[in-house]
Design a binder for these strands. Structure first.
Lengths: 111, 111
DNA sequence: ACATAGGTAAGGACTTCCCCATACCTACGC
DNA sequence: GCGTAGGTATGGGGAAGTCCTTACCTATGT
């Protein structure tokens, strides 16, 4: 169990436009932000993001994010685990996650 | 002459999602890259970007970029000047332009 | 004055994206 | 076994994005 799925691309095959696209949608940005704040384990089950979306829409966004190399999904029996590819992203796109963090901070109210 | 147009927002009113959206399109990323490499003056007339687009499509993309706070357009008689809001962007979204530069480098062939 | 060239605006065709409802499938608890 | 709950796949409706053509406007050059 806990097998990662296929469709988790090599980050070297991902271009800047693809990650920008993936992060351009508020819901997806929120998911990344959410994974960033759970700093030590950076994971969560799908329902824990508290987004105003149906389950199928959430599935859709997670698929887009997986295709863009942002996250990895692992099946855990019934649930699924979403893991941010933090170190890989930091290495491949330095500064990107800092921008996401900044967006989170600003949305949180301070400005 | 050389009046900046209206519709050039305060960068504090621009969110992370908006800039990511604006940079997510290859043509627009190319324009920013192009403006970045002309490092000392960061400007150019509209036709100098060498994009496979009609003039009206280019106008459209420049408008999107203006609305997203990436560039300022000034009318110079017949031509228009496009200026990247470099310092402002660096202050508001630190690291963002570095990512664009990286995208340009990678597209240029090296990797 | 005239033609030309750069830029814009409006409209339509086409595609892509976003979201939902539905149906289904698999694990878990009883 | 049965119900329930989390996740996925599919399809459709609607919105948004992209690109072009056409028409127009203004400045430049002759």
């Amino acid at each position: 169990m806990a097998e990662p799925r296929s469709r988790h691309p090599d980050l070297n095959a991902i271009g800047m436009a693809a990650v920008f696209s993936a992060l351009a949608h508020p819901a997806r940005a929120r998911i990344v932000e959410s994974l960033l704040t759970r700093d030590d384990w950076t994971a969560g089950n799908c329902a824990s993001f508290n987004l105003p979306l149906s389950r199928s829409s959430l599935t859709h966004h997670l698929r887009v994010m997986s295709d863009a190399g942002l996250v990895i999904q692992r099946d855990h029996g019934n649930r699924c685990e979403v893991v941010l590819r933090k170190e890989e992203l930091d290495a491949r796109f330095p500064g990107l996650l800092d921008l996401v963090r900044q967006g989170a901070r600003e949305r949180a109210g301070a400005r």
